[in-house]
């Protein structure tokens, strides 16, 4: 059956609606970031005068650079640790038989659904006592914890897709369990691991509740938390332009991820949720 031009046009129209829906707020904040102070309040969607002054401003001060470094460092470290730990656990869950497996799945499910704010109070107190409050590890630890269920689900879904017989075959070919893992399973799991890393990174990068509750200074405050403190500081009289510029800067990596790894992110997000 040939697809008529009319149907194509209709779909194209629907596609345009979706694209506009998805990009509208993003383009708006980008537009704000390029406006000059004078035209900031004109309410125009497209800037009448373009400027890079806002970007120059944020990169001229520690108030943004420091949180950016914090965000990058904390999210990267938390992602690495969560993916490595998650990979080990997910492999065990998908492939091995051992006591306590169901309990582990149950616990991580519980954590995945847990309201983070419920942990903020005790963690605030505990971290203050341990001297972890307002430090990198103070954020990395809860990030790992909340990223682990995500990592375990996504990875174990990927691991399950690797045919179980391959591992049997490797054993029959003379491999130890370790060799079977590193030489057969790991290469096949690499795309899944990569996808999981992206998802976990986005999660850590996005967090606001912990970032604002468990930090108090630039020592460990991440960009999302810092953004909300731009308002009212003496450095910036009117923070709108600078907040927008900062927002664009932390949005760029995510948009790049999405552009390059769309297929994988979709696969990762949907893998754990639906039984295939």
């Amino acid at each position: 059956m040939a697809v008529t031009t009319g149907r194509k046009a209709r779909w194209a129209l629907i596609d345009v609606v979706v694209v506009v829906y998805a990009l509208f707020p993003v383009l708006w904040i980008a537009s704000l970031s390029f406006k000059t102070k004078e035209t900031l309040a004109d309410g125009n969607f497209i800037p009448r005068e373009w400027t890079l002054q806002n970007y120059a401003d944020i990169f001229a001060t520690n108030e943004f650079i420091r949180p950016l470094i914090n965000s990058l460092g904390i999210a990267t470290i938390a992602t690495l640790i969560a993916v490595v730990l998650g990979m080990m656990a997910a492999y065990a869950i998908a492939r091995l038989d051992f006591p306590g497996k169901k309990a582990l799945i149950g616990v991580s499910l519980l954590i995945a659904m847990f309201p983070q704010i419920s942990l903020v109070t005790p963690l605030f107190n505990i971290e203050s006592a341990l001297g972890l409050f307002d430090t990198w590890p103070g954020l990395i630890l809860p990030y790992i914890t909340f990223a682990l269920p995500l990592a375990i689900y996504t990875l174990s879904a990927f691991f399950r897709e690797i045919p179980w017989e391959l591992e049997k075959a490797a054993k029959m070919d003379g491999a130890t369990p370790g060799q079977a893992f590193w030489r057969v399973i790991a290469p096949l799991a690499a795309p899944g691991v990569f996808t999981t890393a992206i998802l976990v990174f986005i999660f850590c990068w996005n967090d606001f509740v912990f970032a604002i509750s468990l930090t108090s200074t630039e020592a460990s405050r991440t960009v999302p938390a810092a953004l909300s403190f731009f308002t009212g500081t003496s450095q910036f009289e009117d923070p709108t332009g600078t907040i927008s510029a900062a927002a664009v800067v932390i949005t760029v990596p995510i948009v790049l991820f999405v552009l390059f790894f769309q297929r994988r992110i979709v696969a990762g997000l949907t893998s754990g949720a639906v039984k295939g």
Partner: peptide
């Protein structure tokens, strides 16, 4: 004995070829 120590080869229904 672990499979690797039995010196037996196996052909699987799905062939179980390593795709990579």
């Amino acid at each position: 004995k672990a499979p690797k120590d039995r010196d037996i080869a196996m052909v699987f229904q799905s062939y179980a070829l390593y795709p990579h």
